[in-house]
Design a protein around this nucleic acid. Structure first.
Lengths: 182, 182, 182, 182
DNA sequence: CATGAATGAGGCTTCATTCAT
DNA sequence: TATGAATGAAGCCTCATTCAT
């Protein structure tokens, strides 16, 4: 599934990001992971001493980076906050349709598994990073700090809810339409 | 954990609803479940022939019923849609604080496990039921059908996103504040 | 699968004879048995107080009766021992082809399961019954007692071996040809 | 039961060959198997990825090898086919008496369990191997190819039937006497 | 730096049986 | 006489991890 040209460690992270997003932390076994990454059996603990949980942390970071790039790409050329938000939602809907990115990859990866404070803190850090990124774009487009904060949180919640509803419906329309309500 | 006076089947459903919500479908083993429900080992497959998945379906229905009661109780005495929505969010936030109801119980129960079409369809049915219930209250309070539909979906998504963000933050404030943005 | 007109007890025996022959004593669960016999769940222990093993004994007896009828029908109109034996083998081969009667029903039913002396004794009793039946026909056709005894045992062993080889080959020819070697 | 000096994998195969022969595929649980082989719980699936069925295949092969050695040893020093066959039967009868080798190990191991085409094919391959081995010895002793084929199949069937009858009777005499009838 | 053999705890499910009615 | 709810032992298998190399 993964490009064999990438180093083993990167292949593992990529496979983990994909599989955890799709089936959840507990739904993915190390055997699946190693097979998908075409990684030798023993190499996981070489690159990730704490095993599955280390890999999940790295996969979440990787997925978050992709989301941050998506946010930046959406807002960079936008005139207004709403335009940027709309572009972002369209991009997310497209991902939903094409790759079956049908849940928040962070929630699927970190909000399962052992009731881990480390996981929760990492998820929190990532989510605040998304909100902050949107907030910055909102502020740059002229919104007051308070308004920017409210709007960025609002967008975050809509996206999370949109993912859930689109998944249940097997239909991404709700993601495209949701900025009407901003 | 459960009242031993209830019949075994109900104890199983109650325990399942609680545990699945907290740790996710795959995060809960049958041993945990049976111990929590104080149910004998062999009784699970007597009451739920298809085992864990049958129980998950029943637990999701049970959790949904509680949510529907919560919605009804919130909107019944409310003058406006916004009042009802605000009351609902306060009740949810309280649940979050008290019982650690830290995710959507439906998502935690049904959006894991084998990529089960039966699960997805049940989740969809339940979610549309919530939205329909809110929609009816909105319509009754005077909103146009179109407006009622938009607002009920909007509220649904905010609640889903609010649960996620509150969980990450270990703080339910965002749930209480989110009707400011309706 | 079974005629619902028969009494429950007979339906159970018939289903057991069929299923045990096909899949072996341990390969058949009581659930399969009750489903195939369309018998109510609790009725097995009513008719067979010792449960599965009682049923297996009855099923073996039933299968043996059918075999005895087959032997009688084959030898009754035969002029010589060899003619009778040949007819019997052709009948058995036909059963093999049609019903998939691919093993000795007695061995499949009684030579599995708990290392039960009662089972072994019943199997022995049944096998000696088959041999005695053939022996009587052989004696009636003029063979000396000693010769009749040798030939009937010989035929018994060939049939057992023929069943096994035919099953492995998925081909009943070896059963039809084996009286050439008597 | 097994020599602890052997590697784990070999101990598993040896235990499996013994237990399956005695109690049949379904009659042996993995717990029995692991205890008898003094093997750690997790090691079975390391050596036999498909679990019990892989182990059964290996055990059948191992049992077959022993049978082939027995055939070779019996016919190698024999002057005539009948002498070789008689020696083989005496050896088998002795095994029956000493080790309780009371059934065809191949049938007990492979003709149970899920109606597995892979099992049936392996059993067929093994049986044809036995017949071919006897056939070669028969041909070498001067028999025509056709006669050698008939006699080797005949011996195979007698042995199968002899095992069954000796088991029912708890007496191996019939195995010793059966070459009188070749 | 990298590997894959080895491990034992725990996974879900099916089993034959008992019991109250 | 006849039923089906209830049970706990045992079934096979997958798990994440450790270890020797």
């Amino acid at each position: 599934m993964n490009d064999r040209a990438l180093p083993t460690k990167d292949r593992l992270i990529l496979s983990a990001a994909t599989l955890f997003r799709t089936r959840g932390y507990h739904g993915v076994g190390l055997a699946d992971l190693l097979a998908d990454a075409k990684a030798p059996k023993g190499s996981l603990y070489h690159h990730f001493p704490n095993g599955k949980s280390d890999l999940a942390m790295a996969a979440a970071t990787s997925a978050s980076d992709e989301m941050l790039r998506l946010i930046a790409a959406s807002f960079d050329g936008a005139d207004t906050f709403k335009d940027g938000a709309t572009t972002l939602c369209y991009k997310l809907a497209k991902l939903f349709d094409i790759t079956g990115w049908d849940t928040c990859p962070i929630a699927a990866t970190l909000f399962e598994g052992p009731d881990n404070e480390e996981f929760r803190a990492h998820a929190s850090h990532i989510y605040e990073g998304w909100i902050a990124e949107v907030h910055d774009h909102a502020a740059r487009s002229g919104l007051s700090d308070e308004d920017a904060r409210a709007k960025s949180e609002h967008l975050f919640m809509l996206i999370q809810g949109g993912w859930t509803l689109a998944r249940a419906r097997r239909n991404s329309d709700v993601i495209r339409q949701m900025t009407d309500r901003l």
